[in-house]
Write a protein that binds this DNA or RNA. Sequence first.
DNA 1: AATATAGTGTGTATTAATTACACTAAGTAA
DNA 2: TTACTTAGTGTAATTAATACACACTATATT
Lengths: 229, 229
Amino acid sequence: MKEVLPQFNSAVSIDCVLFGFDGGELKILLIERNEEPFKDWWALPGNLIDEDESVDQSASRILHELTGLSDVYMEQYYTFGEVGRHPQGRVISVAYYAMLRLGGDKALKPLTTYAKKAQWINVRELPKLGFDHQHIFDKGLEKIKRRIKHLPIAFELLPEKFTLTQVQNVYELILGKKLDKRNFRKKILSFGVLKELDEKQKGVSFRAATLYKFDKRKYAKLFGKEISF
Amino acid sequence: MKEVLPQFNSAVSIDCVLFGFDGGELKILLIERNEEPFKDWWALPGNLIDEDESVDQSASRILHELTGLSDVYMEQYYTFGEVGRHPQGRVISVAYYAMLRLGGDKALKPLTTYAKKAQWINVRELPKLGFDHQHIFDKGLEKIKRRIKHLPIAFELLPEKFTLTQVQNVYELILGKKLDKRNFRKKILSFGVLKELDEKQKGVSFRAATLYKFDKRKYAKLFGKEISF
DNA sequence: AATATAGTGTGTATTAATTACACTAAGTAA
DNA sequence: TTACTTAGTGTAATTAATACACACTATATT
């Protein structure tokens, strides 16, 4: 019986849908490519995996290279493996999404060498994307629409301290519809993972809202028992 | 600017969690390996993809080779990419599940050459599995627990004509808990995707139950509008 | 000081969905 | 005919989801 070593039969890459919220709009990070194929096109940030790292590690590394960020909640959601999806050869891509706070203290520092630039772009005004990246994005948005109803991923988009109105904005942007303020507040508070702070919003020219923060300890206690919208 | 073709950087395989229901037990198909590594161990059926097929096509092909079946509802659910998961090299595995009827007219004809045998095994009595296949199975079971609540995948496990008690058995086995008969029937019928037949169960030594079938036409109409438990 | 502005913050009634719960009916076998 | 086994059914109680409107408060403006 001969022993057959597994032969490499594909290139494997990671593509990331990085969601960001800047206080008003839901955005994703796109790069403008500087290489063929799809030179000068916009595309999702991504790269080939290294042979000595897991796909999760690879996703973290690539995110880090693209943004300078580490320790970000990041989740695999689908693997795209159509034969013709990369015009120059067989590339299977494992897609991840991440949720990032924008405009905070630490700015994002893309270290992309293969891109002319990286830019946060409103998800409602996406340009034409290279490869099958529109499809990858669509699937990603669909995923988080579901997941946001059960998991506390929305808070990843917000600054450490936030108002309930901000949380509602995030939900409305992701779900693509308006929600009733009273019902929303009732529900989001009923999950018991928000801690009301003894502190108010500042710098607004109207009544300042109470600030809250996401309480990881309480969430850990409820883990398993899922949040549900 | 040099143009870089994507280099192959991994072997990619498919692993399948094939669920089957024989009237009493929830089972999955396992093979007993006849090759190193994990010779003589049980493992999930799977194989390397071909370079000229999509991962979905690959999954269908592999399922066909293992069971002789085609046109089976099959869905990708996760990609496993730990570095050390295959002892002989870098193999990334895309996992799929499928739901099959067992014991029907057409028996399954595994055409596995790399396995000593293939066998349906009760999910509550799984042997020790090679590779990270226990983990792949666990994740798969978790997935279908969720999906069975929203999608009509459970009917794929049943014969064309079935009783409501059989449907309930399938749900109880997958969810791992007892359900109330009256509430279950109320709910499953309220989805409106079952058609009551003018026919009764046969060959039982007690009151025969009414047979139903899954109505694909009605389901198609409701498509998009999701079923929910 | 008065006023306009803009977002904050709250409660209740209605409806729908979920849960809990127990007996009778029908068929088969002895 | 009786005993046995599973099929089949309804209602009340609870909980969750929805719909809906106005008063409060901080600031900016005049």
